[in-house]
Simulated scan of single mutants.
Amino acid sequence: MRIILLGPPGAGKGTQAVRLVERLGIPQLSTGDMLRAAVAAGTPVGLKAKAVMDRGDLVSDDIVVGIIADRIEEADAKKGFILDGFPRTVAQAEAFDSMLAEKGLKLDAVVEFKVDENALVERIVKRAKETEARGEQVRKDDNPEVFKTRLDAYRTQTAPLSAYYQGKGMLKTVDGMEPIDDVTVAVKEILGR
Rank of each mutant, 00 (worst) to 15 (best):
A17L: 03
E73T: 12
V115M: 11
A186R: 04
E94Y: 01
T43Y: 07
G14Y: 12
L100M: 02
R71K: 14
P9Q: 14
D116E: 09
I63G: 10
V52R: 01
D141G: 05
K126F: 09
A93Q: 11
E136A: 12
T89M: 08
D175G: 09
P160G: 10
G14P: 10
E145S: 12
V90Y: 02
G14T: 11
D70I: 06
K103W: 11
G25C: 06
V45R: 01
P144G: 03
L105Q: 15
R71M: 08
T89K: 08
L151I: 10
G169Q: 02
T156M: 04
A77K: 07
S98H: 12
G80F: 02
A153V: 15
D175C: 12
K129A: 14
R127H: 10
G104A: 05
A101W: 04
K168W: 07
L171G: 08
I190K: 03
K13L: 11
D97K: 11
T43S: 15
D181I: 12
A11Y: 07
V110F: 05
V187W: 00
T43V: 08
D61A: 08
A186L: 00
G80W: 04
T184C: 00
V185K: 15
V45Y: 04
R19T: 00
Y154F: 14
A40Y: 08
L24P: 06
V125T: 13
D175A: 13
N118S: 14
L120P: 00
I72S: 10
P9G: 08
E130F: 00
A91W: 07
E102W: 01
M1L: 12
R2F: 04
A38R: 00
Q157N: 13
V174A: 11
V52F: 04
G80E: 04
M1D: 00
D181T: 14
E73S: 13
L47M: 15
L6K: 05
F113S: 03
A38M: 03
R193E: 11
P160K: 12
A77P: 02
L191N: 06
A17K: 03
L107N: 10
K129P: 02
G25W: 02
V185Y: 06
A119T: 06
A91K: 14
G80H: 04
R36L: 01
N143K: 15
A17N: 03
G25Y: 06
A17T: 00
L24N: 02
Y165N: 07
I190S: 01
K168T: 08
F81C: 05
E136H: 07
V52D: 01
P9S: 10
K78I: 06
P144I: 05
I68K: 00
A69L: 04
V111K: 05
A69R: 15
K103D: 09
A75C: 01
K114A: 15
K106H: 15
K48Q: 13
K13Y: 11
P27V: 06
K140Q: 11
G25R: 07
T149V: 12
M99Y: 07
A77I: 05
L100G: 05
V59T: 12
K129F: 01
R19C: 00
G85N: 09
D97P: 05
P160Q: 05
V185L: 13
Y165M: 09
I190L: 09
M53A: 14
M177Y: 02
E178A: 15
A128Y: 07
E94R: 14
A40G: 10
Q166Y: 02
F81E: 05
G176D: 14
D33P: 03
L161A: 08
E130S: 07
A186M: 06
R23A: 14
I3W: 00
K188E: 13
G192R: 01
